[in-house]
Design a protein around this nucleic acid. Structure first.
Lengths: 158, 158
DNA sequence: ACACGGTAATCAAAATTTGAACAACAGCCC
DNA sequence: GGGCTGTTGTTCAAATTTTGATTACCGTGT
């Protein structure tokens, strides 16, 4: 039973995974140097800034960040300590709580965004032509949607 | 000076990063369930298995894995405990040491590979047509090469 | 041979992440 | 209302990762 990928696909896979690893590392370094934020910090700020009321339920936030619940708790606590977000009990559901963007958080985001976007352009986007952008978008949009639904762990057979 | 990405590029960037995050998480889960190996374990085994003598210097290995030196030390120690690799002093350079693939390690790789490749196919590759494969390869091969050389942290201006 | 500046890897302590167990609450059936 | 059962978040301990020294060794110059 040939479970292996053909050569072209294997090549694609390896290139993708290694370059992505390098890219993420590089972007995170740049971001930390420029603004003292981690990638996760930045991502939280972006998500909160884009939603009406600048607030999000913990679970919702965890889902979008692809974070485990306890990791999110830690992340938000850390940002709370630094004044970037506040934590408030959820009005509609007494169990829940929501993270709210603070003025300081918004400021930090405004401050960091130009550097970060510049970094993304420099390391990735400026090197891609329009066709490649389109291709990238198509592939990963589809992939993202497909991975949303399915549950984890589908061992091939055995 | 508009440092922001145009809309198409921003969309591409977001799709890419979120889907990649999800994909890596999923693949790692699958791999762990199927064979008890972490992604890093697997990657180490692959790299070692492909090189003549099945051995690699610590630094070389760290470079390819995009790991910090001390993380690699920990990783290799862990695999050594489980018998997947051995650690040997480097003949040519008394400072160095090299990780060597053991029989058990090779076996573990042979055992895990079909599951993992199946997983990669299922979650990513089977959904891509030939043009997309080609595009993916082109983009990330180029990116990987470009990121090899450059040093980190290039703050935009300030 | 001996000291010097530089590199490879490890070690110890601090920070982060995971996974299991837990507390507080919602929604529902009786 | 009172008792289940499933959610939502948090907490705690253990495992992992990072950071900053520290050790051992190379190559060079004296």
């Amino acid at each position: 039973m040939t479970e292996s990928l053909d050569n072209d696909r294997l090549t694609a896979w390896r290139a993708y995974i290694e370059a992505s690893q390098r890219l993420f590392t590089r972007l995170e370094d740049d971001l930390r140097v420029a603004s003292g934020l981690s990638f996760a910090d930045y991502h939280v700020l972006v998500l909160l800034s884009e939603v009406p009321g600048q607030r999000l339920r913990m679970g919702e936030l965890a889902g979008r960040l692809v974070f485990s619940p306890s990791r999110l708790t830690y992340q938000v606590s850390s940002m709370q300590r630094r004044g970037l977000v506040a934590r408030q009990p959820c009005p509609e559901d007494g169990r829940g709580s929501e993270a709210v963007l603070t003025a300081a958080g918004l400021l930090a985001l405004r401050e960091a965004a130009p550097h970060h976007l510049h970094s993304v352009r420099t390391h990735l986007m400026d090197d891609l032509d329009d066709a490649e952008i389109a291709c990238l978008t198509r592939i990963f949009t589809r992939l993202g949607q497909r991975l949303q639904g399915t549950a984890s762990a589908a061992p091939s057979d055995s």
